[in-house]
């Protein structure tokens, strides 16, 4: 693997007394789609803003293209396309002004591509940004983020609050972006369906920490929901080792396990229990199991 496109080491961030990021380390390889998952307020936006140089690291370090985005905004931001969560654009501009304004900042801007995107998104060049619907605004923001064919596309909750048609546009843009060799997409989301569709790797952020960071095709095969019957009733099931989440009481427990099947069998026989069923899990369930309840202890992180 060549040099990672983003390297975050032990990043900590507090806003006032509230700890938002508590030692986040994340390496995002060049090429492919990286999905950053987390509930509301988990710190996804904060991580993304650090990579854009909008927040300076309080401790730890952030490198994008091997550079510090705060110290060198021209050489980092010039290669990044960004669509923010609120899709804020200057209200007073018209679409064609927004395009020519944005074009000026990027030497690689492709006017033909911009024009074809504008046609595809059905954006009227004379329309004011303030008069756009939410979906059209997202498309305008996407156009501005894509038209310079950035090496890194950063999307913060790109499809929250949008209708399925606009969501398709956004997913399509992500797919087209990485279909060109070597380009990278980093996006945050809590819509797990689209994460599962487009992400190569995902990281789950919870309570300011990375709970999990794995390739997409591993996460589904490594998580299972196991229903087991214990020989003696317990009031609390020990969530440690391969067990990451449990529900139930007494003898019967439904537990989420991470690991190979034979690990699960060894562990179950150690507990002197029998396995009733083993079911595969979808990303939704894994996400809930990983982030539900209290913050998980450090040992559980992979």
């Amino acid at each position: 693997m060549n040099q990672p496109i983003i390297e975050i080491r032990d990043l900590k961030r507090c806003f006032g007394k509230k700890v938002v990021l508590d030692g986040v380390s994340l390496t995002i390889p060049t090429g492919g789609v990286f999905g950053l998952l987390g509930g509301n307020g988990a710190g996804k936006t904060t991580v993304l803003r650090h990579t854009l140089g909008l927040l300076a690291a309080q401790s730890g370090s952030v490198r994008v293209f091997g550079l510090d985005p705060v110290a060198d905004p021209v050489r980092t931001l010039g290669r990044i396309g960004y669509l923010s969560e609120n899709r804020e654009l200057p209200e007073w501009m018209r679409i064609h002004q927004l395009i020519s304004y944005s074009q000026a900042f990027y030497p690689n801007w492709d006017p033909d591509y911009a024009e074809s995107l504008r046609n595809m998104f059905e954006l009227d060049p004379k329309a004011y940004v303030r008069a756009l619907s939410r979906g059209q605004r997202a498309r305008a923001g996407l156009l501005v983020a894509l038209a310079h064919r950035p090496d890194l596309l950063v999307l913060d909750e790109p499809s929250s609050g949008l209708d399925p048609v606009v969501r398709r546009d956004i997913l399509g843009a992500i797919i087209r972006t990485i279909a060109d060799e070597g380009r990278t997409v980093l996006f945050s989301s809590h819509l797990l369906d689209e994460v599962e569709r487009v992400a190569d790797r995902i990281a789950i952020l919870h309570h300011g920490r990375i709970q999990l960071c794995v390739p997409m095709d591993q996460i589904l095969s490594s998580h299972r929901r196991v229903r087991i019957r214990l020989s003696s009733a317990v009031s609390r099931f020990p969530t440690e080792g391969i067990w990451i989440h449990c529900e139930g009481s007494g003898h019967d427990w439904s537990v989420v396990a991470e690991g190979e099947m034979h690990d699960i069998q060894t562990e179950v026989s150690r507990l002197q229990a029998e396995i009733l069923t083993v079911e595969p899990m979808n990303l939704d369930d894994i996400f809930v199991a990983r982030t539900a309840g209290k913050p998980l202890t450090a040992e559980v992180r992979s």
Partner: peptide
């Protein structure tokens, strides 16, 4: 690969696999 990926909206790498 690219056509199918854009059509069914999944990552091209997944289709390639």
């Amino acid at each position: 690969i690219r056509e199918l990926a854009e059509n069914i909206l999944v990552n091209p790498n997944t289709v390639a696999r």
